[in-house]
Amino acid sequence: MPKHREDLDRVFHALSDPTRRALIERLVRGPASVSELARPFEMALPSLLQHLSVLERAGLVTSSKVGRVRTFQLAVEALTPGAEWIGRQRLPAERRLDRLGDFLTPDTTKEN
């Protein structure tokens, strides 16, 4: 399997979980420490760290550690391949729907 496909699989796998999507949504607002990210979730810290690890392996987030505080930030550019893939799938479908709409719409310019 080509590497870019494996990368895309990792991104979509990471985004398939609602907790990980919520973490991404929070990180859109800016970097946050693990404790800040954990606040809204009712789960053990090791479970949250597993979610962050999945996001980091997919390249969607990066982290840095200063002292005892680990901070995560969104890697915005990592979302681009997924968005491009979705766009490539959407365009042909939209064209088919446009053609269907043209077929189903009566042509009022023709005289009877």
Rank of each mutant, 00 (worst) to 15 (best):
G59M: 05
Q89R: 14
L37Y: 04
M1C: 12
F103C: 10
T108V: 14
K110C: 05
K110Y: 08
L60G: 05
L48A: 12
L48C: 11
L52N: 04
L100N: 01
P81T: 07
E77K: 06
V34C: 10
W85G: 00
M43C: 02
G30S: 13
S63E: 14
I24Y: 00
R39L: 10
T19D: 12
T108I: 11
R21D: 02
P31R: 15
P2S: 08
L100K: 02
L45T: 09
A58M: 09
L100I: 11
H51D: 14
E77G: 04
Q50N: 11
T71C: 11
L55N: 07
K3M: 05
E36A: 14
S53K: 12
T109C: 03
T71W: 11
E56Q: 15
S35Q: 14
V66S: 12
F103T: 08
A78P: 00
A75K: 03
H51E: 14
A58R: 11
Q50Y: 06
P31G: 13
K110A: 12
A44V: 07
G101I: 07
V69R: 13
F12P: 08
A44Y: 07
R96S: 10
R90D: 07
V34L: 12
R99M: 13
L37G: 03
F12Y: 10
E84S: 04
